[in-house]
């Protein structure tokens, strides 16, 4: 099991058939984006049809998990028992993803140190043997 950043009482993710493959990849510690099988434009969250060319063919592209902070907020309200505050919610622009971003957290950082444009890297948090959540920490290289 990985290092833990958030308590078990954090709300769990919910998935349907379209988003389930993304969460299954996450459980294997693979951060993926959906890629259109016809025009190769990428998208997140997963959806059934490419909004650009309307093809329903798609695959999954694994990304490195390197990226930068696009925007963020420091939440000062507790969420779930045992939650330390403030914690940081951020939108991360993902390298090599075709210009995609995702909502996540920045961890292993003093709350005051987070800034737009800062480089970050992926760190997986195993909430349980079956559930891994991708979070980000300041880039180490």
């Amino acid at each position: 099991m990985s290092e833990r950043y958030f308590p078990d009482t954090m709300p769990p993710p919910m998935a349907d058939g379209t988003s389930l493959p993304w969460w299954k990849a996450a459980a294997e510690h693979r951060l993926v984006v959906q890629e259109c099988g016809a025009c190769q434009v990428t998208r997140l969250p997963p959806s059934p049809v490419c909004p650009d060319c309307r093809s329903d063919q798609f695959g999954w592209r694994e990304v490195s998990g390197e990226g930068e902070v696009y925007t963020f907020t420091r939440v000062h309200r507790p969420l779930g028992a045992g939650q330390a505050i403030p914690f940081i919610i951020a939108v991360i622009a993902l390298d090599g993803s075709g210009g995609l971003r995702m909502i996540s957290n920045v961890v292993e950082i003093e709350a005051d140190a987070v800034a737009i444009g800062m480089r970050v890297e992926l760190v997986w948090e195993d909430m349980s043997p079956d559930l891994a959540i991708p979070r980000f920490r300041p880039a180490t290289n």
């Binding site: 954090m10 993710p13 919910m14 988003s19 969250p45 914690f87 909502i103 349980s128």
Partner: peptide, 24 residues
């Protein structure tokens, strides 16, 4: 035990990409 849940609507499937990060 934290585990993936079934989304009962498209909105909740969408919230699946916000809630596990504490975005409620």
């Amino acid at each position: 035990v934290p585990s993936l849940q079934q989304a009962n609507s498209l909105l909740m499937a969408s919230m699946g990409f916000a809630m596990p990060y504490g975005l409620l």
